[in-house]
Design a protein around this nucleic acid. Structure first.
Lengths: 125, 125
DNA sequence: GCGCATGGTTACCAACTGGTTACTACATCA
DNA sequence: TGATGTAGTAACCAGTTGGTAACCATGCGC
């Protein structure tokens, strides 16, 4: 569990590191509703490549928010579950989602149409 | 305001993008308590280089969570303030912080000492 | 005129992240 | 016999991020 040692010490930073993979909120979103197999996750999140999905799941597992269980069956079956710690992220993901929506709404208002919205025209504008 | 258009569509992802710079939570943390000059921020966050700090502040400004005000004085004075939208991140940063602390506590318990904590010894261990 | 402080910018780099493609191994299905 | 589905791994690549160091322009005090 080397990776854990490398997590930032400052709490908020650490949380952001844990959440901050390209596909992790998607994975969490689905795992909040129950366990899922790799192939199911792939179907639900078609844009992620298998390599990266596995990579993200490994990290989430090492960060203790996802549990991986292998069933030694005929076609190997691997089930991913959100741990208690993982489930405890649910309100945070919700809050982020709500804030993101608000952010989108407020900025689209400013952004839409009127170029007067720009408070401090930098030359790059 | 090109950058706004490129923000991810999924709200939580968008929020993470806005929060997800190496120093942004630090900046927010200090701006939550009131306006600050660049030099003050540099003093409070000694590990960040000026270039990167300015870079992060620019992004935060474009994302609408920070306001930049220039006073055309003898030594130029520039003051950064958290906008209303920026201040609305406060509870989220708090939540992330609390979760990060919990995460650190729970994992340190598992991690500390006993190598038996590892649920599924991967060869890399 | 020299160095300092302010608030930057520029050029250049190294590391990390995510992505593509191809490959493994096993067993069933047609 | 060969394609399909399962769950991966390995090699390689490109874009983004953060970081260093040097530089600019201004005005002050000495």
């Amino acid at each position: 569990m080397r990776i854990l040692k490398e997590l930032p010490l400052v709490p908020a930073e650490r949380a952001l590191k844990v959440l901050g993979g390209r596909w992790k909120v998607y994975v969490l979103y689905f795992l909040f509703d129950g366990p899922m197999r790799l192939s199911e996750l792939r179907r639900q999140i078609p844009d992620v490549s298998q390599k990266v999905l596995v990579q993200q799941l490994r990290e989430m597992e090492e960060h203790g928010i996802v549990h991986r269980e292998v069933f030694a069956e005929v076609p190997p079956r691997v089930v991913y579950t959100a741990t208690k710690l993982g489930l405890s992220l649910r309100p945070i993901v919700s809050a982020l989602c709500a804030w993101g929506r608000r952010h989108a709404a407020e900025l689209d208002v400013l952004d839409d149409g009127s170029p007067a919205a720009s408070p401090r025209a930098r030359k790059r504008a």
